[in-house]
Write a protein that binds this DNA or RNA. Structure first.
Ligand SMILES: [Mn+2]
Ligand SMILES: [Mn+2]
Ligand SMILES: [Mn+2]
Ligand SMILES: [Mn+2]
Lengths: 155, 155
DNA sequence: TTTCTAACATAGCCCTGGCTATTCTTCCAT
DNA sequence: ATGGAAGAATAGCCAGGGCTATGTTAGAAA
């Protein structure tokens, strides 16, 4: 065999170096672990603002999961200090919870507005934003925000 | 109590209707389940193209996980018909696997290019794209593609 | 005040996707 | 030809995030 039997010889071709590659995947895995927490506190904040209280059944309905699934998750959120639970009463956000909810809500809104600004239908924007939001870094969020502002200015 | 004790009375305020909300979350959960498969086949395709073979150690190194984690996942991919495994030999993509890899790679590339096109640094674009790609619908992907093409045309 | 129902709690199951520790195989160097 | 090391397989653990089935409780309606 020649020393050149590998498709891209020594130049390492298209692939980025392993540690850079690894870092991206690690970050993505980390984002995935915080996704649910963000969606829950955001939804709880919305429900409270909208109807005065956040109940398990409503959370379950809007998330499209079963009530015990919500119950288990709420225990985790309580253990992690995001919410306060009173048995057979509603859910209340702690200060930490409110803060995370506010951040999540703002980021979510910017992402959705951005998608609309580049011409995507509101239905699709809503769906895609629900997943994309959790993987948008501060730098990207700033770029999205700028873009939305500019687009509005030119209309 | 007055009939108006709830913050937003009858207009249902800011929240979208429950079933629409639910649909977004369901889609996002579905996308999450396919994320890993997409990243694996894409990475395997890249490794084969780059070095002639895809080995567990290299996959593990680039994903930032342990080798048995990769081994277990590869069994699933084989069971699902994306790859072919020969004990103590490398990984080979089936036709289905190649097809998914190609789709994933293209989508990934468009997302990353798009982020760069709106002014995000390549480092951040790489990281964010790794997560965002899995939540981009065909409609959004088309919009991203158009935007990239236009941006290149005007430079 | 009592009853009944909707909401909540709890138990117990499953799958996914991580990990460590250990045991094969292969294959290269000696 | 053989030994060792690198790579792959296997076993067994854990947490997260789903589910169903079932028991409990609070509060409204009667
Ligand atoms: Mn959100
Ligand atoms: Mn979301
Ligand atoms: Mn990818
Ligand atoms: Mn990815």
């Amino acid at each position: 065999m020649s020393p050149d039997d590998k498709p891209h010889s020594d130049s390492e071709s298209l692939l980025v170096d392993p540690s850079t590659h690894m870092e991206s995947f690690r970050r993505t895995r980390h984002n995935r672990r915080t996704e649910l927490v963000e969606d829950y506190v955001e939804l709880i904040a919305d429900l409270i603002e909208d109807g005065g209280e956040a109940r398990q059944v409503d959370i379950a309905l809007r998330l499209g999961v079963a009530q015990p699934t919500v119950a288990k998750m709420l225990k985790r959120l309580a253990a992690d200090g995001y919410i306060q639970q009173r048995r057979y009463r509603g859910i209340f956000l702690t200060d930490i919870g409110k803060q995370l909810a506010e951040q999540s809500r703002e980021r979510h809104h910017i992402v959705e507005s951005f998608l609309c600004a580049i011409g995507i239908s509101i239905e699709t924007a809503r769906i895609d934003a629900e997943g994309i939001e959790h993987h948008v870094s501060p730098e990207t969020l700033e770029a999205f925000k700028r873009f939305v502002t500019q687009t509005i200015a030119f209309s």
